[in-house]
């Protein structure tokens, strides 16, 4: 579980570093090509938001599964 979370944090940090790097490279990355990356950022935020909620539900289910196992 802890590894899952750690890897997610690592991936997110890498992603943001990438974005920050790209920003330095081309002046303002999010403003390039008619602000298209603003849309990309919005879609990514929605995706990760829903994934985080899924992880929350997943952890709850794991707990319930363990409880069921204990009851048996």
């Amino acid at each position: 579980m802890i590894w899952n979370r750690l890897s997610l944090v690592c991936i997110l940090t890498l992603l943001f570093q990438q974005m920050a790097f790209a920003q330095q490279a081309s002046g303002d990355f999010l403003r390039s090509i008619g602000h298209i990356y603003v849309v990309v950022a919005v879609i990514l935020i929605i995706f990760f938001g829903i994934v985080l909620f899924l992880i929350y539900l997943d952890r709850k289910l794991t707990k319930l599964e363990n409880q069921i196992k204990e009851n048996e």
């Binding site: 602000h35 603003v38 950022a41 919005v42 935020i45 929605i46 938001g49 829903i50 909620f53």
Partner: peptide
């Protein structure tokens, strides 16, 4: 719970869009 998640995402995505407009 689901509504709150969508509301939070709406706020954050709105903030990003607002930054560039």
């Amino acid at each position: 719970r689901a509504g709150f998640v969508f509301g939070l995402l709406g706020t954050v995505t709105g903030a990003i869009w607002a930054k560039y407009t």
